[in-house]
Design a protein around this nucleic acid. Structure first.
Ligand SMILES: [Mn+2]
Ligand SMILES: [Mn+2]
Ligand SMILES: [Zn+2]
Ligand SMILES: [Zn+2]
Lengths: 143, 143
DNA sequence: ATTGCAGATGCAAATTTTTGCAGAAGCAAT
DNA sequence: ATTGCTTCTGCAAAAATTTGCATCTGCAAT
């Protein structure tokens, strides 16, 4: 629980309790490169703290997502996956429905949509992770 | 199973089998106004055909979503919901994280995003239902 | 009308995710 | 350091969703 102080500060500022379990879940997600399932997070957590329960991991993943600290990917036909939301690197994922490959899409690419939602519906889009579906360049070409 | 011939034609054109169970699931979703959970679809289906299994309903909901005939809403903290995709009325849902209210967002509002994805990443966005998160006008005002 | 077969179904079981609740623990105020 | 309030945790159970498999069926070709 040494790194990611800025993230932990963000939690404290939100008036939120920082339990060891919560810190561990955060730490596991932030120390991993990729996109972890709840179960993978759970296994990593248990290496350090074997009595943490899977439901606690789930609850904290939901919680941290609501706080905007982690993003959740919902890929077709597989369990949800989670990843760190690193300031300045916010992105969404566009998944090819043909080959399953994934393109990372900058949150800035949604600026236009954000503006449209605000002006047309008064709705303020939050930078919550989206999983988009479509065809990647190669699959579109070979079709 | 009398109406929605155009939808059924769309299935036939896709070279897909039209089983009574599939037709029923389609019918239930298309005859309902709103946004049904899998279980609600199941109950409606069973009124007409009591031996249809819940897993068949799930499989057909997934299937029909993949065919683009129904949309799936994933609202925070509740089971997935499904609705008809009516030609010319394609829309997404923007859900307020504060009050839970829902704004329907035309698919056309994503035209800009669609263009950006194509030019920047070569990715062809499919008109698959999205659930967006943010603040509605009232909640944003009172904050 | 019969046949063949890819794909769909029902059922049971597994997997994934959520929830209720009693006790535990963070943390702000003494 | 102690207290009190509130939120969080572990555990057990439920609910939601997916899967394996033997059998069945839509439907295209004969
Ligand atoms: Mn990513
Ligand atoms: Mn709708
Ligand atoms: Zn592809
Ligand atoms: Zn609202």
């Amino acid at each position: 629980m040494s790194c990611h102080e800025h993230v932990i500060d963000q939690l404290r500022d939100a008036g939120v309790r920082l339990t060891p379990q919560r810190a561990l879940v955060l730490d596991v997600v932030y120390h991993s490169e990729g996109h972890l399932t709840a179960d993978e997070v759970y296994e990593q957590v248990r290496v350090q703290s074997p009595y943490v329960d899977l439901s606690t991991v789930y609850r904290n993943l939901v919680f941290l997502r609501q706080q905007g600290l982690i993003g959740e990917l919902r890929l077709e036909g597989q369990p949800a996956r989670f990843e760190a939301v690193r300031s300045g690197m916010e992105h969404h994922h566009a998944v090819c429905t043909a080959c399953g490959c994934m393109v990372e899409v900058g949150h800035c690419d949604l600026a236009g949509l954000e503006a449209t939602l605000l002006s047309k519906y008064g709705f303020r889009l939050e930078p919550i992770h989206l999983t988009l579906s479509g065809l990647c360049q190669q699959c579109a070409a070979s079709a």
